[in-house]
Design a protein around this nucleic acid. Structure first.
Ligand SMILES: [Zn+2]
Ligand SMILES: [Zn+2]
Ligand SMILES: [Zn+2]
Ligand SMILES: [Zn+2]
Lengths: 129, 129
DNA sequence: TTTGGTTCGATAATGATTTTCAGTAAGGAG
DNA sequence: CTCCTTACTGAAAATCATTATCGAACCAAA
């Protein structure tokens, strides 16, 4: 029935996002694609990114500045260590933490627990600040 | 010497926020204050809340919906366990986690590490799930 | 080629937050 | 208490990321 069609626009967004190692906003990604000569609409970029998030291909992260940034990530459960200077991102998991947080939540009577964990810092390639 | 003046508006916002146990957005807080008969501007509420966050009196949390919510919290370092139905919030700290995350970040060459950790779930006062 | 649904994208709309800026008032000086 | 300086207030306009519209472009199939 409702099939997903593969268009050059979607492919282009996937490729452009794949070339980056860190998170990037839809606006920025679109601007760079246009600057590189690709002619596609901002709306299309938003739709392509949303599709990728829904299919699990990419992760979305909404910062305190209100902008949502995207990144192609592994399918397994993980968290991010992000350089707040260059954006370099490392995926990681913390053994035991998942269980610890769930236990803590349960001890407070909470059910269906989910969590949001992100680490920020300055990577070795970036000057201290 | 840019000093801070105490106005009834700031006091009112602080009190209104203090009556709540969970996070609330500036828009919502303003709406309720107006509904309660207090006549102040939305801009003023935003400014009062921003001041409280800067002074460490309150915590701000920007959700994936783009809205920032505020809550008066303890001064000590802590994280939040939030009911996504009624908004009830519990502050907590995880012994050992702070060190574990810092060590992990350092092992990847990251400096000046900070972290964002929030737990979400349904509290015991809220139905189903 | 005709057909019917999918996708595109320019543009308008949305909605939270910020900026403006002229009028108000806190609070220290005298 | 009165004056002054200047932070504060708030209605309205400006920002800005994201979403909704809707006609045109596209594609696969009949
Ligand atoms: Zn990821
Ligand atoms: Zn996890
Ligand atoms: Zn808090
Ligand atoms: Zn912590």
């Amino acid at each position: 029935m409702t099939q997903k069609r593969s268009t050059w626009q979607k492919v282009a967004v996937r490729e452009e996002l794949g070339e980056r190692s860190g998170f990037i906003s839809a606006q920025q990604l679109h601007a760079e694609m246009v600057a590189a000569g690709q002619k596609l609409g901002l709306t299309t970029v938003y739709r392509a990114l949303t599709d990728m998030v829904e299919s699990g291909e990419a992760d979305a992260l909404t910062g305190s500045d209100g902008e949502t940034r995207y990144r192609i990530c592994g399918q397994e459960h993980h968290h991010h260590l992000i350089c707040n200077v260059c954006g370099k991102t490392v995926e990681f998991e913390l053994p035991g933490f998942e269980a610890a947080t769930k236990a803590l939540a349960l001890s407070h009577g909470f059910q269906e627990v989910s969590h949001s964990i992100e680490l920020f810092g300055t990577c070795s390639d970036c000057p201290r600040g």
